[in-house]
Protein backbone atom coordinates (compact mmCIF):
# COMPACT_ATOMS: atom_id res chain seq x y z
CA UNK A 1 0.00 0.00 0.00
CA UNK A 2 2.79 2.40 1.05
CA UNK A 3 4.75 1.50 -2.06
CA UNK A 4 1.69 2.19 -4.23
CA UNK A 5 1.27 5.58 -2.56
CA UNK A 6 4.93 6.37 -3.15
CA UNK A 7 4.63 5.49 -6.82
CA UNK A 8 1.58 7.73 -7.20
CA UNK A 9 3.40 10.45 -5.30
CA UNK A 10 6.23 10.19 -7.78
CA UNK A 11 3.82 10.21 -10.73
CA UNK A 12 2.29 13.47 -9.51
CA UNK A 13 5.69 15.11 -9.27
CA UNK A 14 6.63 14.15 -12.84
CA UNK A 15 5.21 17.36 -14.43
CA UNK A 16 7.23 19.49 -11.99
CA UNK A 17 10.35 17.41 -12.64
CA UNK A 18 9.91 17.69 -16.41
CA UNK A 19 9.35 21.44 -16.07
CA UNK A 20 12.49 21.73 -13.94
CA UNK A 21 14.54 19.63 -16.35
CA UNK A 22 13.52 21.69 -19.38
CA UNK A 23 13.49 25.20 -17.97
CA UNK A 24 16.10 25.02 -15.19
CA UNK A 25 18.40 22.07 -15.51
CA UNK A 26 18.84 22.17 -19.29
CA UNK A 27 19.82 25.90 -19.46
CA UNK A 28 22.25 25.42 -16.57
CA UNK A 29 23.79 22.30 -18.13
CA UNK A 30 23.92 24.03 -21.50
CA UNK A 31 25.69 27.04 -19.98
CA UNK A 32 28.28 24.68 -18.46
CA UNK A 33 28.79 23.03 -21.83
CA UNK A 34 28.92 26.32 -23.77
CA UNK A 35 31.48 27.76 -21.38
CA UNK A 36 34.10 25.49 -22.99
CA UNK A 37 33.42 26.81 -26.47
CA UNK A 38 34.03 29.90 -28.51
CA UNK A 39 30.78 30.81 -30.17
CA UNK A 40 29.50 33.98 -31.79
CA UNK A 41 25.76 34.25 -31.22
CA UNK A 42 25.16 35.25 -34.83
CA UNK A 43 27.51 32.85 -36.51
CA UNK A 44 26.16 29.71 -38.13
CA UNK A 45 29.56 28.05 -37.76
CA UNK A 46 29.66 25.29 -35.16
CA UNK A 47 31.05 26.29 -31.74
CA UNK A 48 34.81 25.78 -31.40
CA UNK A 49 35.98 23.80 -28.38
CA UNK A 50 38.58 25.83 -26.47
CA UNK A 51 38.71 24.02 -23.12
CA UNK A 52 39.20 26.34 -20.16
CA UNK A 53 40.30 29.33 -22.24
CA UNK A 54 37.14 31.31 -21.43
CA UNK A 55 37.88 30.85 -17.74
CA UNK A 56 41.56 31.73 -18.03
CA UNK A 57 40.58 34.79 -20.06
CA UNK A 58 38.14 35.88 -17.38
CA UNK A 59 40.54 35.38 -14.50
CA UNK A 60 43.08 37.62 -16.24
CA UNK A 61 40.51 40.14 -17.45
CA UNK A 62 40.53 43.60 -15.92
CA UNK A 63 36.82 44.02 -16.78
CA UNK A 64 35.84 40.78 -15.06
CA UNK A 65 37.66 41.66 -11.83
CA UNK A 66 36.07 45.09 -11.95
CA UNK A 67 32.70 43.30 -12.15
CA UNK A 68 33.63 41.12 -9.17
CA UNK A 69 34.53 44.26 -7.23
CA UNK A 70 31.31 46.06 -8.28
CA UNK A 71 29.23 43.02 -7.32
CA UNK A 72 30.98 42.62 -3.96
CA UNK A 73 30.57 46.31 -3.06
CA UNK A 74 26.93 46.28 -4.08
CA UNK A 75 26.17 43.00 -2.29
CA UNK A 76 27.80 43.85 1.03
CA UNK A 77 26.68 47.47 0.83
CA UNK A 78 23.08 46.37 0.37
CA UNK A 79 22.50 43.21 2.31
CA UNK A 80 24.07 44.26 5.66
CA UNK A 81 21.94 47.41 6.09
CA UNK A 82 18.97 45.56 4.59
CA UNK A 83 19.12 42.78 7.21
CA UNK A 84 19.65 45.23 10.10
CA UNK A 85 16.99 47.70 9.04
CA UNK A 86 14.40 45.08 8.14
CA UNK A 87 14.96 43.47 11.55
CA UNK A 88 14.53 46.81 13.30
CA UNK A 89 11.43 47.63 11.26
CA UNK A 90 9.93 44.22 11.97
CA UNK A 91 10.51 44.70 15.71
CA UNK A 92 8.96 48.13 15.50
CA UNK A 93 5.91 47.00 13.53
CA UNK A 94 5.20 43.90 15.59
CA UNK A 95 5.07 45.93 18.80
CA UNK A 96 2.53 48.38 17.32
CA UNK A 97 -0.99 47.79 18.51
CA UNK A 98 -2.55 49.81 15.67
CA UNK A 99 -1.77 50.09 11.96
CA UNK A 100 0.30 46.91 12.00
CA UNK A 101 -1.19 45.58 8.75
CA UNK A 102 -1.06 49.00 7.13
CA UNK A 103 2.63 49.42 7.97
CA UNK A 104 3.42 45.94 6.65
CA UNK A 105 1.63 46.75 3.41
CA UNK A 106 3.27 50.15 3.11
CA UNK A 107 6.79 48.77 3.54
CA UNK A 108 6.07 45.79 1.32
CA UNK A 109 4.54 47.77 -1.56
CA UNK A 110 7.82 48.69 -3.38
CA UNK A 111 8.60 44.97 -3.68
CA UNK A 112 5.49 44.58 -5.84
CA UNK A 113 6.72 47.23 -8.26
CA UNK A 114 8.70 46.00 -11.26
CA UNK A 115 12.45 46.61 -10.95
CA UNK A 116 12.40 48.54 -14.20
CA UNK A 117 9.73 50.95 -12.98
CA UNK A 118 11.52 51.36 -9.64
CA UNK A 119 14.80 52.18 -11.38
CA UNK A 120 13.07 54.65 -13.71
CA UNK A 121 11.46 56.48 -10.78
CA UNK A 122 14.77 56.71 -8.96
CA UNK A 123 16.59 57.81 -12.11
CA UNK A 124 14.33 60.85 -12.19
CA UNK A 125 15.12 61.55 -8.56
CA UNK A 126 18.88 61.22 -9.12
CA UNK A 127 18.81 63.57 -12.12
CA UNK A 128 20.98 66.57 -11.20
CA UNK A 129 17.78 68.66 -10.99
CA UNK A 130 15.90 65.95 -9.15
CA UNK A 131 14.73 65.39 -5.60
CA UNK A 132 17.92 63.68 -4.36
CA UNK A 133 20.06 66.80 -4.82
CA UNK A 134 17.30 69.02 -3.41
CA UNK A 135 17.00 66.81 -0.34
CA UNK A 136 20.76 66.78 0.35
CA UNK A 137 21.00 70.52 -0.20
CA UNK A 138 18.18 71.02 2.29
CA UNK A 139 19.64 68.50 4.74
CA UNK A 140 23.20 69.88 4.65
CA UNK A 141 21.96 73.45 4.32
CA UNK A 142 23.91 73.96 1.08
CA UNK A 143 22.91 75.83 -2.04
CA UNK A 144 22.85 74.35 -5.53
CA UNK A 145 25.43 71.65 -4.88
CA UNK A 146 25.36 68.80 -7.36
CA UNK A 147 26.13 65.64 -5.45
CA UNK A 148 26.76 63.80 -8.73
CA UNK A 149 24.50 60.89 -7.92
CA UNK A 150 24.88 59.41 -11.37
CA UNK A 151 28.42 60.37 -12.22
CA UNK A 152 30.62 60.15 -9.15
CA UNK A 153 31.84 56.58 -8.68
CA UNK A 154 30.88 56.26 -5.01
CA UNK A 155 27.64 58.20 -5.27
CA UNK A 156 26.60 56.05 -8.21
CA UNK A 157 27.22 52.89 -6.22
CA UNK A 158 25.29 54.38 -3.31
CA UNK A 159 22.44 55.30 -5.66
CA UNK A 160 22.03 51.69 -6.87
CA UNK A 161 22.23 50.47 -3.26
CA UNK A 162 19.49 52.91 -2.23
CA UNK A 163 17.17 51.73 -5.02
CA UNK A 164 17.62 48.08 -4.09
CA UNK A 165 17.38 48.75 -0.38
CA UNK A 166 14.17 50.72 -0.85
CA UNK A 167 12.67 48.01 -3.03
CA UNK A 168 13.40 44.99 -0.87
CA UNK A 169 13.60 46.18 2.73
CA UNK A 170 9.82 45.76 3.15
CA UNK A 171 9.92 42.25 1.73
CA UNK A 172 12.48 41.09 4.29
CA UNK A 173 10.66 43.00 7.04
CA UNK A 174 7.59 40.86 6.37
CA UNK A 175 9.71 37.68 6.59
CA UNK A 176 11.12 38.87 9.93
CA UNK A 177 7.62 39.66 11.18
CA UNK A 178 6.45 36.14 10.37
CA UNK A 179 9.56 34.77 12.12
CA UNK A 180 8.85 36.86 15.20
CA UNK A 181 5.18 35.88 15.18
CA UNK A 182 6.13 32.21 15.22
CA UNK A 183 7.92 32.59 18.59
CA UNK A 184 5.41 31.37 21.20
CA UNK A 185 3.89 34.21 23.17
CA UNK A 186 4.34 32.19 26.40
CA UNK A 187 8.14 32.54 26.21
CA UNK A 188 7.88 36.35 26.10
CA UNK A 189 5.31 36.30 28.91
CA UNK A 190 7.57 34.11 31.06
CA UNK A 191 10.46 36.53 30.54
CA UNK A 192 8.29 39.53 31.46
CA UNK A 193 7.03 37.73 34.58
CA UNK A 194 10.69 37.14 35.49
CA UNK A 195 11.19 40.91 35.26
CA UNK A 196 12.79 41.29 31.82
CA UNK A 197 12.52 44.72 30.18
CA UNK A 198 11.37 45.14 26.57
CA UNK A 199 14.96 45.43 25.37
CA UNK A 200 16.07 42.42 27.40
CA UNK A 201 13.18 40.41 25.99
CA UNK A 202 14.23 41.38 22.45
CA UNK A 203 17.95 40.86 23.11
CA UNK A 204 17.75 37.54 25.00
CA UNK A 205 14.52 35.96 23.74
CA UNK A 206 13.57 37.30 20.30
CA UNK A 207 17.02 37.56 18.74
CA UNK A 208 18.31 34.06 19.65
CA UNK A 209 15.03 32.43 18.64
CA UNK A 210 15.01 34.43 15.41
CA UNK A 211 18.41 33.15 14.30
CA UNK A 212 17.10 30.81 11.56
CA UNK A 213 15.02 33.65 10.09
CA UNK A 214 17.94 36.07 10.33
CA UNK A 215 20.11 33.56 8.54
CA UNK A 216 17.49 32.92 5.91
CA UNK A 217 17.03 36.64 5.29
CA UNK A 218 20.76 37.34 5.13
CA UNK A 219 21.44 34.51 2.71
CA UNK A 220 18.36 35.29 0.60
CA UNK A 221 19.20 38.96 0.41
CA UNK A 222 22.83 38.18 -0.38
CA UNK A 223 21.86 35.86 -3.22
CA UNK A 224 19.36 38.40 -4.50
CA UNK A 225 22.03 41.12 -4.45
CA UNK A 226 24.48 38.88 -6.31
CA UNK A 227 21.88 38.51 -9.07
CA UNK A 228 21.04 42.22 -9.32
CA UNK A 229 20.71 43.42 -12.91
CA UNK A 230 17.88 45.72 -13.90
CA UNK A 231 18.82 48.66 -11.66
CA UNK A 232 22.38 48.78 -12.98
CA UNK A 233 21.23 48.15 -16.55
CA UNK A 234 18.76 51.02 -16.48
CA UNK A 235 21.15 53.39 -14.78
CA UNK A 236 23.74 52.77 -17.49
CA UNK A 237 21.05 53.23 -20.16
CA UNK A 238 20.15 56.48 -18.41
CA UNK A 239 23.68 57.87 -18.91
CA UNK A 240 25.55 56.69 -15.80
CA UNK A 241 29.09 55.37 -16.37
CA UNK A 242 29.20 51.58 -16.46
CA UNK A 243 32.49 50.87 -14.67
CA UNK A 244 31.47 51.41 -11.01
CA UNK A 245 28.21 49.45 -11.35
CA UNK A 246 29.25 46.87 -13.92
CA UNK A 247 28.06 43.95 -11.80
CA UNK A 248 28.66 40.42 -13.05
CA UNK A 249 25.14 40.01 -14.42
CA UNK A 250 25.46 43.22 -16.43
CA UNK A 251 28.83 42.04 -17.74
CA UNK A 252 27.24 38.71 -18.72
CA UNK A 253 24.49 40.57 -20.56
CA UNK A 254 26.91 42.82 -22.44
CA UNK A 255 29.27 39.97 -23.27
CA UNK A 256 26.41 37.92 -24.73
CA UNK A 257 24.16 40.53 -26.28
CA UNK A 258 26.55 43.32 -27.25
CA UNK A 259 29.70 41.29 -27.94
CA UNK A 260 27.88 38.12 -29.08
CA UNK A 261 30.39 36.00 -27.06
CA UNK A 262 28.01 33.43 -25.66
CA UNK A 263 30.78 31.03 -24.53
CA UNK A 264 32.49 33.68 -22.44
CA UNK A 265 29.17 34.88 -21.03
CA UNK A 266 28.34 31.28 -20.11
CA UNK A 267 31.67 30.95 -18.29
CA UNK A 268 30.82 34.05 -16.26
CA UNK A 269 27.38 32.62 -15.49
CA UNK A 270 29.00 29.40 -14.28
CA UNK A 271 31.31 31.34 -11.96
CA UNK A 272 28.36 33.28 -10.59
CA UNK A 273 26.45 30.02 -10.23
CA UNK A 274 29.24 28.58 -8.05
CA UNK A 275 29.42 31.72 -5.93
CA UNK A 276 25.67 31.57 -5.30
CA UNK A 277 25.87 27.82 -4.70
CA UNK A 278 28.60 28.40 -2.12
CA UNK A 279 26.39 30.81 -0.17
CA UNK A 280 23.39 28.47 -0.46
CA UNK A 281 25.54 25.62 0.88
CA UNK A 282 26.65 27.91 3.68
CA UNK A 283 23.02 28.59 4.49
CA UNK A 284 22.23 24.86 4.75
CA UNK A 285 25.30 24.20 6.85
CA UNK A 286 24.78 27.01 9.30
CA UNK A 287 21.00 26.70 9.53
CA UNK A 288 21.40 23.04 10.53
CA UNK A 289 23.52 24.03 13.51
CA UNK A 290 21.23 26.94 14.35
CA UNK A 291 17.94 25.09 14.52
CA UNK A 292 15.81 26.17 17.43
CA UNK A 293 13.02 24.36 19.17
CA UNK A 294 10.49 25.74 21.60
Amino acid sequence: MERKKAIWGFVFTIPAIVFFLIFDFYPVANAFWMSFFKKDLLSLNPPKFIGFKNYTYLFTSEAFWNSVKATAIFTFGTFVPMVLVSLALAALIITRKRFQKFLQMAYYSPAVLSSVVAAMIWLLMFDPRGLANQFLNYFFNTYGVDYHWLSNENMLRLATIIVYFWKYVGYFTVIFISGMASIPRSIHEAAIVDGASGWQDFRHITLPLLKPTTLLVSVMSMIQCLKTFSTQYLFVQGGAPRGPIDVITLNIYNTAIRDHQIGRASAMSVILFFVIMFFTYLQFRVSRSEEVSY
Partner: peptide
Protein backbone atom coordinates in the same frame (compact mmCIF):
# COMPACT_ATOMS: atom_id res chain seq x y z
CA UNK B 1 31.99 43.50 -36.38
CA UNK B 2 33.18 44.79 -32.98
CA UNK B 3 31.64 48.25 -33.54
CA UNK B 4 29.34 48.24 -30.47
CA UNK B 5 32.25 47.18 -28.20
CA UNK B 6 34.47 49.89 -29.65
CA UNK B 7 31.74 52.48 -29.09
CA UNK B 8 31.46 51.32 -25.47
CA UNK B 9 35.22 51.72 -24.99
CA UNK B 10 35.10 55.24 -26.45
CA UNK B 11 32.21 55.97 -24.11
CA UNK B 12 34.26 54.82 -21.12
CA UNK B 13 37.16 57.06 -22.20
CA UNK B 14 35.02 60.17 -22.77
CA UNK B 15 32.98 59.74 -19.62
CA UNK B 16 36.07 59.07 -17.52
CA UNK B 17 37.49 62.47 -18.50
CA UNK B 18 34.14 64.23 -18.21
CA UNK B 19 32.99 62.77 -14.92
CA UNK B 20 36.17 61.80 -13.06
Amino acid sequence: PQGPQIEQLIREAVESVMLT
